[in-house]
Write a protein that binds this DNA or RNA. Structure first.
Length: 189
DNA sequence: AAATAGGGCAACCGCACCTGT
DNA sequence: CACAGGTGCGGTTGCCCTATT
């Protein structure tokens, strides 16, 4: 079948976004959030960008209430736990972390948590004391320990039990008490 | 001080799914 | 039902900064 490209690559600008472009996009999305789609947005806003690029920029960088960097131990633990159960479903994992984007979680995983995950796996395979000079993983909060146990009961369909959902809520409350917490903001265009 | 390697992050690419016609 | 356009998602790339040699 094949699909036509979403935009003319020869005519759209690529690469890093300038402050001006950010300002235009932010203003336009704020004013016309419900008046169109991502494909037509750059044209209406006067941006020489692909609609997908605009969407990505907004979701990962400009969206209000985003929390950038500074992942907490609770968040790290939750990511590790969820990855262990559902794999690289970054959007699903990010949905459980208020203010985090899938791209953010994905990058954090690749740069920090992947090593930790491998270490945990090897430690689990050979339950012994960690190698000299290697710090043991931080003790997870009680809610996370309970969540781990609840997740272990999740069936193959991937549906969370009521108990797991309840524990998620508890954990989310715990995370949102963090000083950097801004609450979740999911509504987009 | 210069060169190189590695880490971190923003952005792009392509595919799959959803939805309207 | 088939098709096309729009959107979401995961994987990958490329650039910049910092640490190391």
């Amino acid at each position: 079948m094949g699909k036509s490209p979403c935009c003319d690559k020869a005519r759209v600008k690529r690469g890093a976004w300038s402050r001006e472009e950010d300002a235009i996009l932010t203003t336009f999305v704020a004013r016309f959030a419900n008046a169109g789609n991502w494909t037509t947005l750059p044209h209406k806003a006067g941006l020489r960008r692909c609609g997908k690029s605009c969407r990505l920029r907004w979701l990962n960088y400009l969206r209000p209430a985003l929390r950038r960097g500074g992942f907490t131990e609770e968040e790290d633990g939750l990511i590790l736990s969820l990855y262990g159960h559902i794999g690289s479903k970054w959007s699903a994992i990010a949905a459980k972390l208020p203010g985090r984007t899938d791209n953010d979680v994905k990058n954090h995983w690749s740069t920090k948590l992947k090593k930790r995950h491998v270490m945990l796996m090897s430690t689990a395979a050979a339950p012994s004391t960690p190698p000299a000079g290697v710090a043991p993983p931080a003790t997870p909060p009680p809610a996370l320990v309970d969540l781990e146990a609840a997740l272990a009961t999740v069936d193959d369909g991937g549906e969370l039990t009521c108990e797991a959902e309840q524990l998620y809520a508890e954990l989310m409350g715990l995370i949102e008490q963090q000083p950097t917490g801004h609450g979740q903001q999911r509504s987009l265009l």
